[in-house]
Design a protein around this nucleic acid. Structure first.
Lengths: 121, 121
DNA sequence: TAGGGCACTTACTCGAAAGTAAGCATGGCT
DNA sequence: AGCCATGCTTACTTTCGAGTAAGTGCCCTA
């Protein structure tokens, strides 16, 4: 698809660049936990119980490909792998914080509730 | 699906709230153009030539349901409909600007280029 | 020798998001 | 009478992201 073929530099709107980077279902949560400290794969699994191993691995690999996180392998047995925000990833911290701030403020004024949520009211 | 049933207030991470609101394929671009001024449906079509009428209408209605944009109908013939950022939508301007700023800076350092983009280099 | 822990893959399935193409309602213009 | 413009809607199809479940490789321990 052509829209996938466009490079970041070709995107019409810089907002899309950010959405593209953070857009995976679990990426915000992963970054959220990496803001605090370095994490192992199994730690992230515990911190985000709903995510499957497949999706966690996939999103981590995408974040790594996007250079937002760094993957460090310690050649021990059993294996140990640590994920942390890269320096590049840290440049996005203000963006994440601004989004968080807005989200926190406006979470409470619930917006477009899902169908089931309406049904339960 | 359970994750869709959660209300905004139940979201684990406030970033998700923002992603949820801006997450449609054309929403960032729509808001981007509404930042500048009020726009008619047909203006947005010209500004975003790749979007279909269906998707434009759908995303505009979602943005309206989320109270980010206001829809004003002028009962003229042919019909005239104007879309603008609501006051609530304007509270998100700093978020959009922060994202834009990051995106603009980092667009140039192209990140994870798509396969075809690589092939063309 | 069997089982366990870690950090993943792989193959398959499903549903939602997005795209395509066509139609509709109004009334004015020629 | 026929065509145009605007701002959509509808029905159908395709694509893609995400979920399920099972398997892999390594070496240590019991």
């Amino acid at each position: 698809m052509e829209t996938n073929a466009e490079t970041a530099a070709e995107r019409k709107c810089p907002i899309e660049t950010v959405i593209h980077l953070l857009g995976g279902k679990w990426k915000p949560l992963i970054l959220w936990h990496l803001l605090e400290s370095t994490r192992r794969f199994s730690e992230l699994e515990k911190l985000i119980p709903e995510v499957t191993q497949k999706m966690l691995a996939q999103h981590l690999r995408e974040l790594e490909a996007d250079k937002l996180v760094t993957r460090t392998i310690y050649p021990s047995v059993p294996p140990k792998v640590e994920y942390m925000l890269s320096d590049y990833g840290k440049t996005m911290v203000p963006v994440l914080e601004t989004m968080c701030a807005w989200g926190e403020t406006h979470n409470r004024l619930s917006l477009r509730p899902a169908a089931q949520a309406i049904a339960n009211v």
